[in-house]
Design a protein around this nucleic acid. Sequence first.
DNA 1: CTACAAGATGAAGCATCATTCACGTTATGG
DNA 2: CCATAACGTGAATGATGCTTCATCTTGTAG
Lengths: 189, 189
Amino acid sequence: MTSPRPLRADAARNRARIMTAAHEQITEHGPEVSMEQIAAAAGVAVGTLYKHFPNKSDLVTAVVATSFETLADDAEECLQRENQGSPAMAELTGFLSRVMDTVAHNRAVKAAAYALGADHAAHPAMQEVETRVTQALGQLIRTAQAQGGLRADFTVDDLYLMLFTLPADQPPTARARWLALLLTGLTAR
Amino acid sequence: MTSPRPLRADAARNRARIMTAAHEQITEHGPEVSMEQIAAAAGVAVGTLYKHFPNKSDLVTAVVATSFETLADDAEECLQRENQGSPAMAELTGFLSRVMDTVAHNRAVKAAAYALGADHAAHPAMQEVETRVTQALGQLIRTAQAQGGLRADFTVDDLYLMLFTLPADQPPTARARWLALLLTGLTAR
DNA sequence: CTACAAGATGAAGCATCATTCACGTTATGG
DNA sequence: CCATAACGTGAATGATGCTTCATCTTGTAG
């Protein structure tokens, strides 16, 4: 199931360089950066990008998937802390807050959050990660409701809805205010 | 202060056609439609677009400003109805709901709402319209607070924050749910 | 009715990009 | 150390899009 031939040493090194560079460039300039620019940042020729990824879309998707995994890791760590006694509601708001800050500085993750509903989601790599996020957050939500901090009719879909509409281009004060306004609506009762 | 020479008859007609076509095209395909496509839709040559607008950005801004005026009109009508006895809070939520639906179907207005904080706002035409919206909504907010339906610390900036983060690409059910979640956070007490 | 300024035209210039490919380079198994 | 498949290269290709300008057309003042 794994690769038949284990990738030559230099090829593996270049692949890593490309991923790093692509992540940096996309994070900074958004998915519309040119392949030339990514190649330059990685210190390779454009052709090399195409040796590793059939086309630009695939490269972008790979980067987005990586960013998205970070998000899933965060969600699962929240769940873990909750299991160790941390209040579920606090973990949820912490998660929301962190994602919001990340989105504000990282256009790749923004694309990722957005991609949940878009065509990127078709990619198999994405689907698995989405499941992880959904499961972790779902558990967190149920616990928060059981503990009485979160309104009873709140669902994972609602949480995704919040993620879609996070304010990305607003100053920190505005972002904090947005979260505060939202949270009063999510509190139980 | 007005134009020195009053625009030839055919020129005025073409200008109107261009504005209409540009509005339609941008509404449907977003601001990235080509000038060629707009020209074709207007039934003129590309060169004519440039006779009326120095560059694409200016044309897009003109269209966005138009859409934005519709929004200002709506806000002022809300204020008027409020003066005739309609509950301020109902007018506010109605306004939000309408803007949301429009954004969902009209990418030009989406750009407009977004432009409030972006560089488009630099244009003089925008500034005036922004003042109209801000005044009307500010009045509405104050009344809603006096009538006790709206939380006391809510400001016009908060309302803009909501406009920035309206869910555009979500199905109607999701949009409605989003509004409902938000509103429970805005209710007084 | 005429002259001419205002307006319209659209091919051409110029820039940006994604993508390809014929050729040079190199890691690595034997 | 060699043979060779894997890999890397970057100029070239073709597509698309904004903008310009020399040229033609037409509204309109007188």
